[in-house]
Design a binder for these strands. Structure first.
Length: 858
RNA sequence: GCCCCUGUGGUGGAAUUGGUAGACACGCCUGACUCAAAAUCAGGUGCUGCAAAGCGUGCUGGUUCGAGUCCGGCCAGGGGCACCA
C-alpha cells in the first residue's frame, strides 16, 4: 500500500481543478447563487496561520454550498493601500508599489498552495488604478449628491517630524519616531455624511434586514451609533457676569439627564469650545491650559483616560429653576464633537462629574433617591448613584421616577423657551482624508478663483506619481515637485491638486461589489451586482465589528443613492471568527522578535541566536508590527495543505480566539493517514454501490447507522459553523469504521464514499484522491452532498441517568418508547439509587423524556 | 475610562441550549511490533482516596426538583474606541 504523499497529490489536484476551471464562476447560471466572502487581506508580507484559519473556514462553506447545488462565487483580492507600505519605503527605500506587489505575489502563491476553491480570475488589488478609478468616479457622484463635503477636524500633529500621525503612531502622547509630545491640530478635510444615515443604519439592526448577523456585533454597532434622546438648552449668564461677545444667550448645553437639573453644581465646556477659545485670547492661564489639553492624542481612549482636569473661568451662569449660580469651567473631559461641547455637571449622579466635583471641591447635592432609601437621612457614600429611583430635592420634579422626570423637565424648559428636547447621535461623520502617499488620490482641485472643483471624469483616474521622496516624514504628494501643479479645469488658471488620499476603509467599503461585476467603464454593472448581492456569507475578524462593517453598510447606501446597486445591506449573514493569538517577544533593546527567533523554556525566554534574555509580552492577535506571526509554510511543507487546514479548524470553535501552539499537527497528519489507509484498501468500492442493496445484517445496520449519523451531524455542524464539532464527529465515525468488521461490502462502500465526501470541504486534495481510488464519478468537488436517511437515526434503547436530589446516582437502560411508570420502576430499583433513597421518603419524581430522571427524596 | 466578548481536566475543547460534566483530539502512562529508535497499533488517563466515597466548570451570592448553561456582585484575559488593517 503506497504511503499518502501530499507533495505529489496536492499539486496534482490543484492543476486538475485549474484545468477544469472548477472554481471559475459564471454569472449566468440556472442554479441559485451563493456568494461566500472572507474579508480580503492586507498584503503585509506573508500569509500567517490566522489567514489560513479564516480562508479555510470560507472554503469549507464554499465547497459545501457547491456540493449543495449552488452557483458559488468565492473571490479573493488585496486591500493593498495603507501605512505599512509607506513605512517600509521610509525604512528600506523600496517603493510602496513594489513592496506591495511583491508581497501580493508571495501571498497569492501561499494561498494557492492551500487549495482554496477561489475564483482567481476575479482577483484585483485596491492599489490598481483600474480599481480606484471607479472609487474616484463614485466620489465625484457622492460630492455632487452632497454626500461628501469638507470641514475642519483635528489630527495628531508631530511638531518635530512636521507630519500627521495615526493614532497607532502616538505612544503615551508622543510621536513614535520623534518622541516629541503630539499636538492636536485643525485641518480642513473631506468627510462622508454618514450621520445622515444614522437612523437607518440603526433601524436596520433591528428590523430584520440584518437577521443573519450575530447579536454582539449588532449591539456594538448600536452603541457606536449611540442614539440618545435628551435636552438641548441654554444656561443664561448670571446678572453680575460680564457677558462675552457673541454668547449673549448663555451657554448651550446638551444633557441626557435633565431630571437631575436640580443637582447641577457647575457648567463645563470643552477646551475646543468657541467660548473657551474666545476667553483664552485675554487669559494666558486659560490659553496655557487649553494648549495642555491639546497635547494628548485625538483618540477617545487617550482623552477618556487622561486625568480629569478643569480650569475655572470668571464666568457664572444662573439656573433655570432657582437662583443659584453655577461656575463655568473649561474641562478636558468634555468633547467638542458630541452634543454642543458643553454640559452641566451633576456630580451626585454621574461618575465623571463626581470625580471632577470632588477634585475641585464643588457641591454634590443628591436628587435621585434609590428605591427604599429614606430621603431624610440619605447620603452618598464615596461614589455617585447612577441607578433608578425617585427624584427629590427638586421642587416640581419631586416624587417622579427618573423617566417621567426627564419628560417633565424637558417640557418645562420648552415652556420657558430655554431649549428643546432633541435626539442626539454619538456617531460622527466619516473623515476620509489622509495626508499620505499610498492611498487613492482624492480627485479634487483647489483653485484660488473657482474654489474647490472636481476633476472632470474624462481626466480620471488621478494616478499617484511614480516618483516620490520617502526619505523624510510628511506627505510625499504635498512636497512632490510637479504632481500637484495643474490647471483649473474650470477657469484654466494655475491651481493645485488635492494632496489628501482616501482612508483605506473607503477601498474596502465596496470591493465586494466589484468582485461580482468588473466592467471597464463603470464601477459595476447594476443587473450583475444585483444578481450576486447581498454576500450570503461574510466571514472576518471581530476586530472589524464596528468600523469596516459600518462604513461598508453606509457606502452601499451611497452607491444605492447613485444608482449602482439596489440594496442597502451588503452582507446578509455575518460570521465573526476569533483571532489566532500568540505571545509577543521583545529583546533587551525593545525590538520585537518573531516566535522562531525565541526559545521558551519553563516560562523564561531566550534569544535563539545569542542566548540573551527575552521579555515575554502579552498574548495578542498576530500582527506584523509586533512580529508575533507564525507562518503556515513549515506545516504545509512537512505535512501538506490538507493537514494544515484540518488542524486549523480542529478543536477550537471558530468564533473563539485560539492561541497558536505547534502541538497537534501530528494528529491531523495521522488522521490523513488513517483515512487513506481505510480507502486505499478498498479500490473501486463505489462500483459495488451500483449493485442492488443486499439483505442487511445487524452489522450492516450498525455501520449504516454510524454513516448516516455522521452525514446528518456533519451537515448540520457545517451549516452552523461548528467546524470543530464536525471534525470531532468525523473522528468518531472513523473510529467506528475501523472497529466494524462484520459489515458487508455494500455498507462499507457506502461508508467510505460518505467519509470521502464529508471530509472534502476540509481536506479537498485527499478527498479527490480517495474519490478517484474508490471509483467515484468526476471530481468530488462537483459531487452532490450526501443525504442522511433519517429512518436510520432513531434509536431503540436509551441510557438514562438517574439523579437523587440532583446528584447522579445511577443509570438505567430503557426502551425509547417506555411509559413513565416503567421508567420510574426501573429508576427506583437501580442499585445506586436504592442506596441513596434508603430510609428517605420519595417526594417527587421528575422525568424528562429521553434525558434524565430525578428523584426528590428526604 | 466607555462598549462588546471569553473563563470547563496537564492542554485545545464537548455538553442535544436548564437535564448523566469532560465527547473528540493533543499530551502523558502501559503494552504490542522492532536488535534499537521512529512510525504504527491496542489499552488507560478530571482531582483526592487502597477502597467506600467525596470533590469538581474563574470567585461569590441567588433562582430551580436540577445550573457549565439563567439572574446579581466581583476577579482575570482579549477585542474595539473613529488615522493599524
Amino acid at each position: 500500500m503506497p504511503r499518502y504523499n501530499p507533495k505529489e497529490v496536492e499539486p496534482k489536484w490543484q492543476a486538475r481543478w485549474r484545468g477544469a476551471k472548477s472554481f471559475e464562476t459564471q454569472s449566468e447560471n440556472a442554479k441559485p447563487k451563493y456568494y461566500v466572502l472572507e474579508m480580503f487581506p492586507y498584503p503585509s508580507g506573508r500569509i500567517h496561520v490566522g489567514h489560513v484559519r479564516n480562508y479555510a473556514m470560507g472554503d469549507v462553506i464554499a465547497r459545501y454550498k457547491k456540493a449543495q447545488g449552488f452557483n458559488v462565487l468565492h473571490p479573493m483580492g488585496w486591500d493593498a493601500f495603507g501605512m505599512p507600505a509607506e513605512n517600509a519605503a521610509m525604512q528600506t527605500g523600496s517603493h510602496p508599489a513594489k513592496w506591495t506587489y511583491s508581497n501580493i505575489d508571495v501571498m497569492r502563491g501561499q494561498l494557492q498552495l492551500m487549495g482554496l476553491s477561489i475564483d482567481w480570475s476575479r482577483e484585483f488589488a485596491t492599489c490598481d488604478p483600474a480599481y480606484y478609478v471607479h472609487q474616484q468616479r463614485m466620489f465625484l457622484e457622492f460630492w455632487k449628491e452632497g454626500l461628501a463635503y469638507r470641514k475642519e477636524s483635528q489630527v495628531n500633529w508631530d511638531p518635530v517630524d512636521q507630519t500627521v500621525l495615526a493614532n497607532e503612531q502616538v505612544i503615551d502622547g508622543k510621536g513614535w519616531r520623534s518622541g516629541a509630545p503630539v499636538e492636536r491640530r485643525k485641518l480642513s478635510q473631506w468627510f462622508f455624511k454618514i450621520t445622515d444615515a444614522a437612523e437607518d443604519l440603526l433601524s436596520a439592526l433591528d428590523d430584520g434586514r440584518l437577521s443573519g448577523w450575530p447579536d454582539n456585533v449588532k449591539l456594538m454597532q448600536k452603541n457606536w451609533i449611540g442614539k440618545s434622546k435628551g435636552l438641548q438648552m441654554r444656561f443664561p449668564f448670571a446678572a453680575e457676569t460680564s457677558v462675552p461677545k457673541g454668547f449673549e444667550g448663555g451657554v448651550e448645553i446638551f444633557t441626557t439627564r435633565p431630571d437631575t437639573l436640580f443637582g447641577a453644581s457647575f457648567i463645563a465646556i470643552s477646551p475646543d469650545h468657541p467660548l473657551a477659545i474666545l476667553l483664552a485670547e485675554s487669559d494666558k492661564g486659560l490659553a496655557k491650559f487649553i494648549a495642555e489639553c491639546a497635547s494628548s492624542g485625538t483618540s477617545e481612549e487617550a482623552i477618556e483616560k487622561a486625568e480629569k482636569r478643569g480650569l475655572k473661568t470668571a464666568l457664572e451662569t444662573g439656573h433655570p429653576f432657582d437662583d443659584r449660580k453655577l461656575p463655568v469651567y473649561v474641562a478636558n473631559f468634555v468633547l467638542m464633537g458630541y452634543g454642543t461641547g458643553a454640559i452641566f455637571g451633576c456630580p451626585a449622579h454621574d461618575q465623571r462629574d463626581y470625580d471632577f466635583a470632588t477634585k475641585y471641591d464643588l457641591a454634590i447635592p443628591p436628587v435621585v433617591l434609590p428605591d427604599g432609601a429614606d430621603a431624610d437621612v440619605y447620603t452618598l457614600e464615596g461614589e455617585p448613584y447612577i441607578g433608578p429611583g425617585k427624584i427629590f430635592n427638586s421642587d416640581f420634579l419631586d416624587g417622579l421616577p427618573v423617566e417621567d422626570a426627564i419628560a417633565a423637565a424637558i417640557k418645562k424648559i420648552e415652556q420657558m423657551d430655554l431649549g428643546k428636547g432633541v435626539t442626539q447621535y454619538r456617531l460622527r461623520d466619516w473623515g476620509v482624508s489622509r495626508q499620505r502617499y499610498w492611498g487613492c488620490p482624492i480627485p479634487a482641485i483647489h483653485c484660488s478663483t473657482c474654489g474647490i472643483v472636481p476633476v472632470p471624469v474624462k481626466d480620471l483616474p488621478v494616478k499617484l506619481p511614480e516618483e516620490a521622496d520617502f526619505s523624510v516624514p510628511g506627505n510625499p504628494l504635498d512636497r512632490h515637485p510637479t504632481w500637484k501643479h495643474v490647471d483649473c479645469p474650470t477657469c484654466g488658471g494655475k491651481a493645485r491638486r488635492e494632496t489628501d488620499t482616501f482612508d483605506t476603509f473607503v477601498d474596502s467599503s465596496w470591493y465586494f461589489a466589484r468582485f461580482a461585476s468588473q466592467p471597464k467603464d463603470k464601477p459595476m454593472t447594476r443587473e450583475v451586482v444585483d444578481s450576486w448581492l447581498p454576500v450570503d456569507q461574510y466571514i472576518g475578524g471581530v476586530e472589524h465589528a464596528i468600523l469596516h462593517l459600518l462604513y461598508a453598510r453606509y457606502f452601499t447606501r451611497m452607491m444605492k443613492q447613485c444608482g449602482h446597486v439596489s440594496l442597502d445591506e451588503p452582507f446578509a449573514n455575518l460570521f465573526t471568527q476569533g483571532m489566532v493569538v500568540h505571545a509577543t517577544y521583545r529583546d533587551e533593546s525593545g525590538q520585537w522578535l518573531q516566535p522562531d527567533q525565541v526559545i521558551v523554556e519553563k516560562g523564561a525566554a531566550l534569544r535563539a541566536d545569542n542566548g540573551k534574555p527575552v521579555k515575554i509580552g502579552a498574548i495578542e492577535k498576530m500582527s506584523k508590527s509586533k512580529k508575533n506571526v507564525v507562518s503556515p509554510d513549515a506545516i504545509a511543507e512537512t505535512y501538506g495543505a490538507d493537514a494544515a487546514r484540518w488542524f486549523m479548524l480542529s478543536d477550537s470553535p471558530p468564533e473563539r480566539d485560539v492561541e497558536w501552539t505547534d502541538a497537534g499537527v501530528e494528529g491531523a497528519w495521522r488522521l490523513i493517514g488513517r483515512i487513506w489507509d481505510a480507502i486505499s484498501a478498498a479500490p473501486g468500492a463505489l462500483k459495488n454501490l451500483d449493485m442492488s442493496k443486499p439483505n442487511v445484517t445487524d452489522a450492516d445496520k450498525a455501520l449504516r447507522q454510524a454513516t448516516h449519523a455522521a452525514i446528518d451531524g456533519v451537515t448540520s455542524d457545517i451549516e452552523h459553523f461548528r467546524f470543530n464539532k464536525a471534525i470531532a464527529r468525523i473522528y468518531e465515525f472513523i473510529n467506528v469504521l475501523k472497529k466494524e468488521s462484520g459489515a458487508g461490502k455494500w455498507a462499507r462502500a457506502e461508508a467510505l464514499g460518505a467519509l470521502s465526501q464529508l471530509v472534502a470541504p476540509f481536506i479537498p486534495h485527499l478527498a479527490e484522491e480517495c474519490w478517484e481510488t474508490l471509483g467515484g464519478k468526476g471530481f468530488i468537488c462537483d459531487a452532490p452532498w450526501p443525504k442522511a436517511d433519517k429512518t436510520l437515526l432513531a434509536k431503540d434503547e436509551l441510557l438514562l441517568g438517574v439523579q437523587v436530589n440532583g446528584k447522579r446516582r445511577g443509570e438505567i437502560l430503557v426502551a425509547a418508547d417506555a411509559a413513565n411508570e416503567t421508567v420510574e420502576q426501573a429508576a427506583l430499583s437501580d442499585e445506586g439509587v436504592q442506596r441513596h433513597i434508603d430510609g428517605k421518603t420519595v417526594r417527587k419524581i421528575v422525568i424528562v423524556p429521553g434525558r434524565i430522571v430525578n428523584i426528590v427524596a428526604n
